[in-house]
Design a protein around this nucleic acid. Structure first.
Length: 264
DNA sequence: ATGGTGGTTCGACCA
């Protein structure tokens, strides 16, 4: 089974590219982030035409997450329970969606961007990650052999190997101690980064800023991850970061990340 | 191989 995660940065701007990628990528499950659309306008039919069922969670033009699957889509969960709300008129943003796909509990996650160190969004991000960690740890405590994948855009570069320049990111978000600790708390809870062993750093990235010719200059960050529970991590046979998809006009600023699993 | 960002409620905000 092949499971991918991809921040597409708008389904409307990326519709044809996402569907073309899905058609040739041979993935069984695609966890999508930043659809930037509400549920009513998400193009479900486009995915169904390719043989995928799809669940989407989006409330407006921001955030939005989805899971497309051709190996079953059951027990859909809109949102990790108890995630914090944000804003002047506080609302829980559309940043997490879970479903059971081919026996794997898949979560499509779009971790908040902290914007700046000590910005309210930064504290919201850390709180959000702590709630996610507690939820994931509880799931594993209740069911130690659960095949579960936490995948998506974490907006954290866990080590200096995951950024093109330590100096460039000095004083900015994604690399601070508390963010890296929040990420480590997830891996310490038993969720392993299953891509890293196949693509050791430094220099391996999943995101490149649109500005400053970042992509051709290979100036990126590794912030998109697939974190597998112990039972699922034991089944990993390969992983890829589809850097090719970042090329050309009209690409997302993130590349798809794909993991292959052998049958249980 | 890339092209001086690009996405969103059209224009200030988000990443």
């Amino acid at each position: 089974m092949r499971i991918a995660t991809w921040n597409i940065n708008s389904i409307r701007a990326r519709h044809d590219r996402v569907l073309a990628w899905l058609e040739r990528s041979d993935v069984d499950v695609l966890a999508i982030q930043e659809t930037k659309i509400d549920d009513a306008r998400f193009p479900v039919e486009s995915f169904e035409r390719l043989g995928y069922r799809v669940a989407h969670h989006g409330t407006n033009q921001w955030n939005g997450v989805a899971i497309a699957s051709r190996v079953g889509l059951d027990d859909v969960q809109v949102g990790v329970p108890d995630l914090p709300a944000f804003g002047e008129d506080p609302a829980v943003e559309a940043r997490s969606l879970g479903a059971l796909c081919g026996g794997v509990r898949v979560w499509s996650l779009y971790v908040p961007n902290g914007r700046a160190v000590d910005d309210p969004h930064y504290h919201y991000k850390l709180h959000w990650l702590a709630v996610l960690r507690d939820y994931a740890a509880k799931q594993l405590a209740d069911e130690p052999h659960l095949p579960m994948l936490l995948c998506g855009d974490f907006n954290i570069a866990p080590t200096d190997d995951d950024i093109w320049s330590v100096e460039y990111y000095q004083g900015s978000t994604h690399v601070t101690g508390p963010e890296r600790q929040a990420f480590a708390n997830l891996t310490d809870a038993g969720f392993t980064d299953v891509v890293r062993p196949f693509h050791p750093g430094p220099g391996v990235y999943t995101y490149w800023d649109y500005t400053r010719l970042s992509f051709p200059k290979r100036r990126g960050m590794r912030i998109d991850f697939a974190l597998a529970s112990p039972a699922l991590a034991a089944r990993v046979t390969d992983a890829q970061i589809d850097r090719e998809e970042r090329k050309g006009k009209g690409s997302s600023d993130h590349a798809p990340v794909i993991v292959e699993f052998k049958d249980a």
